[in-house]
Amino acid sequence: MSDSSRVRPGSTLEIRDLRVAVGDKEILRGVNLTVKAGETHAIMGPNGSGKSTLAYAIAGHPKYTVTGGQVLLDGADLLEMSVDERARAGLFLAMQYPVEVPGVSVSNFLRSAVTSVRGEAPKLRQFAKDLKTGMDALSIDAAFAQRNLNEGFSGGEKKRHEILQLELLKPKIAVLDETDSGLDVDALRVVSEGINRFRASGDTGVLLITHYTRILRYVKPDFVHVFAGGRIVEQGGPELADRLEAEGYEAYVKASA
């Protein structure tokens, strides 16, 4: 499959009245959001408001039970798909806390992932070249390819690897859960450039979860959503982010309680 056919123009992620529980506890209480290719949406909200829950539920993490609503990618029902089917359908989740997987090397993992998503094994030389280009661009030392996946990586290194995967897998829609947290200024710039390369590489949609406007200065959002109490409580343009930074979430937390 060529890149251009993977990133079909006009991809859309539609989240409709999504309700999600962990155990008996309802966490998402009716989320509505549509992300179209070419758009970047920022979700901002206080700790514990359910942002990661939204990200995990869309990706299909087994701990989260969908109790209502729909998630559609280009009309296809993501909630009916297994985790890996969702990824192959074009969804990508950069995790807030990427998991350490002992004994699985980065290069082996990436090759398996790329093979699965593309539906065929990449040519070894081309893959090695793409990997090197990707790692160089993100200032990741070549030695990391032989290390175990995320094992002993610093917080910043883990985040860079998430973006490396984003660039290699070229999804239709990317959900980035606090990719900016724990990054120093240089790493933030490097990671932001990666996200921008991804945005420029085709017709893709980005849902960017963050606490800070810092990253939004590099990765300009088209829309900003305020998340509180398990739902979106306000929407606006980039200017909303600045207001949040100045005023905090207090007003929204009170209103949603």
């Binding site: 990706a59 299909g60 993490h61 087994p62 297994s82 985790v83 890996d84 969702r86 990824a87 192959r88 989740l93 995790m95 990427p98 998991v99 997987v101 002992p102 004994g103 699985v104 082996n108 993992f109 398996s112 992932a113 699965s116 998503v117 175990n148 996946l149 995967q165 897998l169």
Partner: peptide, 22 residues
Amino acid sequence: FYLQARGIPFEEARRLVIRGFF
């Protein structure tokens, strides 16, 4: 979950993790 979230089918993810264990 992490491997599956990158498109790797369950059976293969399982094999990779067990191989990693050893």
